[in-house]
Design a protein around this nucleic acid. Sequence first.
RNA 1: GAGCCGUUAGCUCAGCCGGUAGAGCAACUGCCUUUUAAGCAGUGGGUCGUGGGUUCGAGUCCCACACGGCUCACCA
Length: 503
Amino acid sequence: MEQDLSYFKNFGEQVEQRISKLDNFAQRNQPAYPPRVIRNHTAAEAIKMFEEAEAALPEDSEEKPQLSVEVAGRWVAVRIMGKSAFAHIEDGSGRLQIYLKKNELGTELYDVFKKDFDLGDFVAVQGYLFRTRTGEVTVQVDNYQLASKALHPLPEKWHGLKDVETRYRQRYLDLVANPEVRDIFRKRSRVISAMRKYLDGEGFLEVETPALQPIYGGAMARPFTTHHNALDMELFLRISDELYLKRLIVGGIDKVYEICKDFRNEGISTKHNPEFTMMECYWAYADYQDVMVLVENMIAFIAQEVLGTTKVVFNGQAVDLTPPWKRLNLAEGIKEQTGIDIFDTYPDVKALWAECQQRKLDVSPQPTWGKLVDELLGEYLEPTIVDPVFIHTFPLDISPLSKQSPDDPRVVERFEAFVAGMEIGNAYSELNDPIAQRRRFIDQQQTTDEEAHVMDDDYVIALMQGMPPTGGLGIGVDRVVMLLTDQQSIREVILFPHMRARE
RNA sequence: GAGCCGUUAGCUCAGCCGGUAGAGCAACUGCCUUUUAAGCAGUGGGUCGUGGGUUCGAGUCCCACACGGCUCACCA
């Protein structure tokens, strides 16, 4: 079976050496990539089994447990001392030391291990368990097989893999080399499990709604555009699932949620990936105040499930997630931080801008009063927040899907949840008046804003069918994971963050 | 999209005022039967991100480009 290996030989000296070892296996009639190997124990199971057997022996016993195991894993470290060698293999459960002795294995098996096996290879070993002089539970190997050959060497054992670009582009290397990275993604998985557990426990029904949408909506963002060939129609990747979930509220699913990817065609930063994970839930007969309680309880529950505490550290700062969280009126917060009473200028963006200029505030110009208020929030309120705060009562013009406040037409019943300088959630009492909703869509069209909501007639028609008073919520799942794993970059909590193509 | 910083062996990093490229780990060859960043002796391995330019001579200086990181802008 002559094969052209020139492609692989361009990867350098060490790859070439490993490829040449494939011949040695072939000549011994041993597959380098066997379809299966014997494996009856994980590394962790083997260790646990031995420890339990030890504990079962009488206190003063000289006996040692006699247990044989069949384990397999990636060979990650070795210490060869002439006629014997210690090595570590690693599987999904952890590391296990193995011990190979020439006089136990026989010359041939022992020499083959030294000669044709490399760090990074997967091996299956059979043997019996013992405890070394230093106390480590170890497999004394009496037989072994290659489970899968690695042609590329592992990253450095002590410093791990540091190069950020390689870590993201070849995440498998990052996971192999850096145990703390594996831990982040285990936690991520548990955060999402805990979130489901909480919502399911509260009686929410998990659903799936379209990612390909003929009309995008539910958020202020630019969409990705795509095309369906058979239907010859333009489609958008969802920027939010909000308008679909609320149709389900209309349909009588009173408590509903979805955890899914949203796609926003905007800049990439340490807090933004073009596709990100969002949890949205809608709760009939609840309002934004009820949703605040849900958020603080849910986040505290998740922290407790994943970390065993509601007190975390983020970026060197202690953050206490224990409910209840602080409630802060947006206008009052801005007044505290900047001295500006935003309602003095309502709804005149020019007057508010002049006010900002006069106070020499570091804000950029915005098309509307509401957007400028939001800018003030982002610049002067958000950075001051460490412990969680619900900032509530938002300008109406930047909240086209939220219900107007009954005692102030300028604002809506909406809040955003901030923790450690990050926005992690956005929620409101849902606008369920179809006439008002249509008006708000039309108002959005009047703005020149590229991110303005587009008219969604089907959604308005759904509201005409009647939607109960409803509280809705969106939680940035990646942000929650960042918070609970103390990661300052969203790329550290996304397995394959978006990267520019090379060459 | 803008500013700043980075890109040297498989990995982690040195490389001064411009003078033929270095270390540790990994690899290879020996020695070594309880080690765990094992140890000892020796050897090989480089398009210095890419392309131009300056210069007798460029990893080093200049310009452009690529990719990445951070900050900013937009957003969750």
